[in-house]
Design a protein around this nucleic acid. Structure first.
Lengths: 223, 223
DNA sequence: ATTATCTATAGATCTATAGATAATGC
DNA sequence: ATTATCTATAGATCTATAGATAATGC
């Protein structure tokens, strides 16, 4: 008779262990970076949150900057891809009569749904992106990961507003992006300011308003 | 005959020296914090930028957190006061028929003018506030310094939109604030995205569009 | 045999303070 | 006599690496 547990499949394969550790580190870093920024987080903080030793973070991610970029990159493809698909679907549906509001619904609502339905980790990623977006280095990461989908949106907006200048289109997008990022950041300021009438993490409330609001804004820029 | 320079008025009085050092430190810290955030700046960086010794920063500001808050506070009264005055002037002028766009022009244009006409230091302060605004601790500093003027704006918006809910008003303000902060941050993203059609530091271009854009957004939220 | 994880530690900062020096002020 | 500024330094981190140990894999 075989001794207990011998020759048994190990609980986790090495590949599984590796994948699990990496995900846990990324989750912890994502949350901490979203709260304190790149420089406000030490690798010890990250390791402590996971319950592992600091050197393991180095083992998997070499250095902090690289960890930061990996946090950004991990979910960027999903949000970018989803929005791209939504914009393409909208384009196909709208034919040669796209509207600003239609394009913004595809772009914004898709994103808000992803974060809200994705649970805590996705909400953290949203806050991470928001925090990063108005920093000089962060803005460059935005370029790398989000330019294609933003330019896709801009392309549709141009066709919806054929007599608009480039400047009007891009400043309008800048306002949209600022409003979105401010919502994703969930700082709690609106909760306090409104005396409890609004809640930072109420993304459905944002979704209900933002596309319509911004579309009306775009239309107002006509001459 | 008196020896050279004796009994002469010193070049700078102690009070002047003190005031000058404090201003220089605040200017340097303001710029550095705007670029790298609270944790991305060391007191040595600040001292080095001014050309003084690190300990002098401690001498005048005790610790980094206090320096950070002093940077925030130094110009907060001016921007808050100016906008408050502009809102009150608008209220007086508009009587019992205030409009959303009128209130937003008073609130936003006044602020943009202050930064743009104030030169480099004021532009740095704008970027500092923007960077700080979507962090949890930063949002609390916003509460302290800007709640009164924001609530003044909100009061006028409510009278301009008497049938709107609190939620619509505050979410609308949240979008306005996000768009403004994104503009103040001047990350350069819009420059690159637009292929040079727009420039981050072109506040006149923002001023030309933002109040009208946001006012139309507010009006679109009706039911 | 390879990979995941931990121990130990070097070297570089960083914050903050104590105490010395050099100016201004009455 | 007071205040502005600098010198020197303690103590606390932080990043990063070398090397040991403990698992899994063929």
């Amino acid at each position: 008779m075989m001794p207990k547990n011998s020759k048994k499949r190990p609980v986790r394969s090495k590949a599984e262990q590796r994948a699990e550790s990496i995900e846990q580190i990324l989750d912890a870093a994502e949350y901490l970076f979203s709260q304190h920024g790149l420089h406000g987080v030490t690798l010890r903080d990250v390791a402590k949150r996971v319950g592992i030793h600091t050197t393991l973070v180095h083992y998997y991610f070499q250095d902090k900057q690289n960890l930061f970029e990996k946090v950004f990159a991990r979910r960027a493809g999903t949000t970018s891809g989803r929005r791209m698909a939504a914009l393409e679907a909208y384009e196909a549906k709208a034919g040669n009569k796209p509207t600003v509001e239609g394009a913004l619904h595809a772009f914004l609502d898709t994103d808000l749904d992803l974060y809200y339905e994705g649970g805590e980790n996705w909400m953290n990623y949203a806050a991470f992106c928001a925090r990063v977006s108005n920093t000089p280095e962060g803005a460059e990461l935005m370029d790398v990961h989000f330019d294609p989908v933003v330019l896709k949106l801009v392309g549709i907006l141009k066709r919806a507003l054929p007599d608009y200048t480039e400047e009007d289109i891009f400043w309008g997008y800048s306002f949209v992006s600022g409003a979105l990022m401010n919502s994703l950041a969930r700082t709690g300021r609106i909760d306090r300011l409104s005396g409890g009438a609004c809640h930072s993490d109420d993304f459905p409330a944002v979704k209900k308003r933002i596309a319509r609001f911004m579309a009306a804004g775009f239309l107002s820029l006509k001459d």
